[in-house]
Simulated assay, not measured.
Amino acid sequence: MEGTVALGNAFGALSSGGAIVAGLAFFAAIYGLFCGGNWLSTRYLLPAVGLGRRIDPRPLRPGQMRGEIASSLVSVAIFGLGSLLPWWFLQQGWARLAQDPGPLRVLAEAAVLLVWNDIHFYVNHRLLHTRPLRRYHQQHHRSLVTTPFATYSFHPLEAALLGNVILLPMLLHDFSFAALLSLPVLSLLLNNLGHSNYDYAPGVGPDHWLAASRRHHLHHACYHGNYGFLFNFMDRWCGTRLPDDAARAQLEAFAARASRHP
């Protein structure tokens, strides 16, 4: 853990411009790595070896992926600029980094942050579906059939809302830098899987965390419901869990049209 402690201290020692550049480079790198890798895996590698299946067979709209990547680059810029806020918290002494965290502490903190991320995502996602804010969420929902590149395809306001997830925890607890760093990495990785339009484990039940891509497919197909992230406890508690066959009529209608016009 000494390496991540030194990395955290180095981040705190950066200038404000250096913190922004570091944030931009970090978010651009993980976006390109995860989205590009997931696209190749779900379009070529996994189907070739017979693992998993595509969920929604409908075609993408013209120019969809180019639009997703363009708006995602704006979100990357916002997240990079947003790196200035945790840096500022450290400069002002409002937050501190744990200097001697053991591996169990790092794992426990990462788990707590992952659960917090689900709660934070659900609350903000529900707000983005309310009448005053839904117009800002339409950009993301232009991806009716999702791709991994849709993960960061946000209006700038949505990017700002979702990108502030780390701030409150930093004010409440002295986290290890490794745990703080794990949050955007795991958040993008798991959100990317959820937008992949690919069922990685067809054999697991609909409430399993590996079925998150099925649940989020339903959200994009139906618009309302399934507002959660990786887990679905918030949707269950708040009564917003969609039936597992909620998009059946849409997919059957597409199949019928395709059979008439092969």
Score class of each variant (00 low, 15 high):
Met1Cys: 08
Glu2Cys: 01
Glu2Ile: 00
Val5Thr: 09
Val5Glu: 08
Asn9Ile: 03
Ala10Thr: 01
Ala13Trp: 04
Leu14Asn: 04
Ser16Lys: 05
Ile20Cys: 04
Ala22Thr: 14
Ala25Tyr: 02
Phe27His: 15
Ala29Ile: 10
Ile30Val: 13
Leu33Tyr: 02
Asn38Glu: 14
Trp39Pro: 00
Trp39Ile: 12
Trp39Tyr: 14
Tyr44Ile: 13
Leu45Tyr: 15
Gly52Asn: 10
Arg53Glu: 15
Arg58Glu: 05
Pro59Ser: 07
Pro62Ile: 00
Gly63Ile: 02
Gly67Tyr: 10
Gly67Lys: 13
Glu68Arg: 07
Ala70Ile: 13
Val74Glu: 00
Leu84Trp: 15
Pro86Tyr: 07
Gln91Thr: 08
Gln92Leu: 13
Leu97Gln: 03
Leu97Cys: 02
Leu97Tyr: 04
Ala98His: 08
Asp100Lys: 03
Asp100Ile: 01
Pro101Trp: 09
Gly102His: 06
Pro103Lys: 04
Pro103Cys: 05
Leu104Val: 07
Arg105Phe: 11
Arg105Ile: 09
Arg105Val: 13
Val106Thr: 08
Leu114His: 07
Trp116Ser: 04
Asp118Phe: 01
Tyr122Leu: 06
Tyr122Gln: 02
Arg126Phe: 13
Leu127Ser: 05
Leu128Phe: 14
Thr130Gly: 03
Thr130Arg: 15
Arg131Tyr: 05
Pro132Lys: 02
Arg134Pro: 04
Arg135Glu: 09
Arg135Pro: 00
Arg135Leu: 12
Tyr136Gln: 05
His137Lys: 07
Gln138Ile: 11
Gln139Phe: 07
Gln139Trp: 12
Gln139Thr: 14
Arg142Ser: 06
Leu144Gly: 06
Leu144His: 11
Thr147Asp: 07
Phe149Ala: 11
Thr151Trp: 06
Tyr152Gly: 00
Ser153Thr: 13
His155Glu: 08
Glu158Arg: 04
Ala159Lys: 09
Ala159Cys: 10
Ala160Gly: 09
Leu162His: 15
Asn164Gln: 14
Leu167Asn: 05
Leu168Gly: 05
Met170Asp: 09
Leu171Pro: 00
His173Tyr: 15
Ser176Arg: 02
Ser176Lys: 03
Ala179Phe: 09
Leu180Tyr: 00
Leu180Cys: 06
Leu181Pro: 01
Leu181His: 00
Leu183His: 00
Pro184Thr: 09
Pro184Phe: 05
Leu186Ile: 11
Ser187Ile: 00
Leu188Val: 14
Leu188Phe: 06
Leu188Glu: 05
Leu189Pro: 02
Asn191His: 12
Gly194Met: 13
Ser196Thr: 10
Asn197Trp: 08
Asn197Met: 02
Tyr198Trp: 11
Asp199Gly: 03
Ala201Leu: 11
Trp209Asn: 05
Ala211Arg: 01
Ala212Lys: 10
Arg214Leu: 14
Arg215Pro: 04
His216Tyr: 10
His216Glu: 13
His216Val: 11
Ala221Val: 10
Cys222Asn: 11
Cys222Trp: 06
Cys222Phe: 06
Tyr223Pro: 02
Tyr223Val: 14
His224Val: 12
Asn226Gln: 10
Tyr227Trp: 13
Phe229Asp: 11
Leu230Ala: 10
Phe231Asp: 05
Met234Trp: 07
Trp237Phe: 13
Trp237Lys: 11
Trp237His: 12
Cys238Lys: 12
Gly239Gln: 08
Gly239Trp: 04
Thr240Ala: 03
Arg241Ala: 14
Ala247Tyr: 03
Leu251Ala: 02
Glu252Met: 05
Phe254Leu: 02
Phe254Asp: 08
Phe254Pro: 00
Ala255Asp: 14
Ser259Cys: 04
Arg260Ser: 10
Pro262Thr: 06
Pro262Asp: 09
